[in-house]
């Protein structure tokens, strides 16, 4: 990896690390949701510092250049993150739908009870 890329990676991951901590402090991000981001940026920091280790591992795994290996790791990480978010979204959707149904049925039965009383 070139020195420029290593510096960019280092700065980028430090910024994302900082943003995570800041958002948690502002209570805009839950700790359990931020763990993957923290881990991700931590791994990137390690990778930009220990260039030799990355080179060695990339070689062993058959990557043409160690940069490719770094990008590969980032892509895998993002895919996993998107998948987890998708599942979370579906669950939330289902929960909102059920709440919606509950409110509608409750209102309906309340209305009918009122009519019976009158």
């Amino acid at each position: 990896m070139s020195l420029t890329l290593r510096i960019i990676l280092l700065i980028g991951s430090l910024i994302s690390f900082y943003l995570c901590v800041k958002k948690i402090k502002q209570a805009k991000l839950k700790v359990e949701n931020s763990i993957t981001w923290m881990m991700g940026s931590f791994v990137l920091i390690l990778m930009s510092i220990f260039d030799q280790a990355v080179q060695w591992l990339a070689n062993k795994l058959g990557f043409m250049a160690s940069v490719n290996f770094v990008f590969f790791i980032i892509i895998v990480f993002l895919l996993i993150q998107v998948f987890i978010d998708n599942i979370r979204l579906s669950t939330l959707n289902e929960k909102i739908k059920n709440l919606n149904h509950y409110i509608a049925l409750k209102e309906n039965s309340d209305e009918r009870e009122k009519n019976v009383k009158e």
């Binding site: 919606n100 149904h101 409110i103 509608a104 049925l105 309906n108």
Partner: peptide
């Protein structure tokens, strides 16, 4: 039965089934 949020056709049918 009227739903507070429009959640689509499927949701409408499902609430009917619950009812």
């Amino acid at each position: 039965v009227s739903l507070p949020i429009n959640f689509g056709l499927t949701s409408g049918i499902q609430v009917g089934m619950k009812y």
